[in-house]
Structures are given as C-alpha cells and as structure tokens.
Amino acid sequence: MASRAPDLDTLAQGARTDVAGAGSLQDLTSVRARYLGRKGSVSDLLRGIGDLPAEERSRVGQQVNALKVQIEDWVAERRAALESRERNRHLEEHRLDVTLPAAGQPLGHLHPVSHVQRDMAQFFLARGFSIEEGPEVETEHNNFDALNVPADHPARDMQDTFWVEGDFVLRTHTSPVQIRAMTGRTPPFRFIAPGRVYRHDFSPRNSPMFGQVEGFAVDESVTLANLKELLYAFAKHMFGAVELRFRASYFPFTEPSAELDFRCPLCRGDGCNTCSQTGWIEWGGCGMIHPTVLRNCDIDPERYQGYAFGMGLERGAMLRHELPHIRLLYDGDLRVLEQL
C-alpha cells in the first residue's frame, strides 16, 4: 500500500475548527471521538506510522503526538467554556422574583407590658437585685396592715380595693411582696417584685388591672440619695436621658415619701395631651421604708434602714408606642397588639 506523508497542518486546522464549532457538550464529545477516538483521524495516523520509512517514524510520531495533545487542550478549553455557558443558562432559568412573600409564618408579638417588664428586670438584675414574686390574692394584713395602713385610717381610701371571699383582697399594689420578702430575712438585701395589681376602677381611661414593679433595698446605711441615684439610672435605662422631679408626698409605708415624675418626652415640658398639659408624667412613688414596716417584718429599725419604690409598667409601654390610653393594652385587639 502506497503511503503519502500525512498533511498534519490540514488535520490540525480542521480539528481546531470542529472543536470551536461544537455547540454543546454532546457535539464536543463526538468531535473529540472523530479525531482522538479509537477510529478517529489521529488514531489512524498513529496506526499508519508503522508503515513509514524508519527514518521518518520518529519525527512523524512526535508530530502526531504533539497534535493529539494540542487537540486535547482545545477540547478541554472548549468543554470548560460550554460548561460555564450551561451553568449560566441554568442559573438564568432559575431566577426568582425575590419580592414575593417569604415562606413560613410571621412571628407573633410579645405584649408591650411584658417587654417593659423585661427591660426593667434586666436593669435591676444587673444592679444586684433579686426578683421576688408574691400572690395576687393577698391577706388584708399583707396588703394593708403590715404596710402601716390600718383600717381606721383614711390612707385606706387611697386605693380602691377588690375584695375576695374569705376577707382577702386582690392586691392593690406590689408592696405586700415587701412584707413577704423581708420577713425572716436578714439585711442586706435588694429585691424587685414585678407583677399585676388590681384597683376597683373601671372606666374608659382606667384599667382595673395594671402592672407594677416594686423595688426595695435594706442595709445599715442606705439613703434617700442612693434611691435617687438608682432611679435616675433606671429612668435613663428606660427612657434615655430624662429629667426627673421628686415631689414630697405621702405613703403610709414610707417616710419620707415622694412622688416621682419625669419630663414629658413628647412635648418636652411644653404641655400636651399625654401629660395633661403639665409637662410632667407621673411615674411612681418612692421613699424610705417606714420603721413600722421594718418592725412588722422583724427587722430592727434602729440598726437597718431601706428605700422602696413602685411604679406602673404601662406608662413606659404607652410612651414607647405612643399609645393614647391604657385600655388598648388590655382589650386584646390584635389590630393593636400585632402592631407593637
């Protein structure tokens, strides 16, 4: 069989064109087979080498092998290009409208008063106060008498009371927790007592139930100045920088006693509906624990003294969310609660 010198350049040209022209991975595979497969052109050439004169075999063999490597490179290059195109096409096809709604259900809502209560607790826990809880149905003794509010004193009228069968009361304030926590304990101690309290007052602007946090500390040299520092820091924690006002007042269980107001954050003191045009918002009461109360808890008032304070939780919640009145918190209207 007569053999001619193979035209390697032509073959290379053709291979290059065919590889570049392969439009898909499938095409590329068949192009590769045409050249490098067992029956491909390059394989034919290699097989034909044996027929060549001896002096040419080595040279042609090298050239054919170089061509084979060259074609493999072109194929690999083309495969990479085709794969990348394929991936991009795939990504393009799976483009989402990310503005459609999220899967899964929306979160629920923590009650605003729970939120405020939690913020308060966080402050006092960090200040070394322990949380103490007491029953909501209380004895007349713990709710009134032990707190220096005897039945025959007009101070009883300061709080409209729900009476419960058995001569019990729905606690009108969290102060009875003072009695429970102090009795049997030896100072020093610091407690807060958050919880719900009840007053016999049901009107559009008032709620018979509201949240309160009581706080008290007893030691040998706790002062009114310490109480002021604590409440300034507390107010700052709850409302940011805020101006406070301490007004002398009367509570049977503290002496001296003070009412605590803060500067209305909505009008900054100019007067608005939130603060009833006074520029101040009543926040709570405070003072130094009355010696009679300490004595009622078997704590020696000659040796120990302490402060106590109590404030409503709703004020904070109402201010935070600019709620116009307290009943919105307790009506259970989801159109309101799910905003907050």
């Binding site: 607790a121 826990l125 960090a126 070394g128 106060f129 322990s130 949380i131 103490e132 809880e133 020093p188 101690f189 610091r190 407690f191 500390a217 030691d219 040299s221 706790v222 002062t223 009114l224 100045a225 310490n226 002021k228 520092e229 604590l230 300034y232 006002r245 301490f246 007004r247 002398a248 001296p256 003070a258």
Partner: peptide
Amino acid sequence: ARIHGLDRIPATVQVGPLVGGGAP
C-alpha cells in the same frame, strides 16, 4: 427634706455587698 427640697438632695451610688441578683 420637703422644705429643703427633694430635688436638692444629692444622688449618690449605694455602697454595700452585692447580694442576690437572681430570678425565681
């Protein structure tokens, strides 16, 4: 206190042992 003015009473940090700080 009330004639002196409660607002004129200083605010000073309470000093004493840290006892507690827990929740039930």
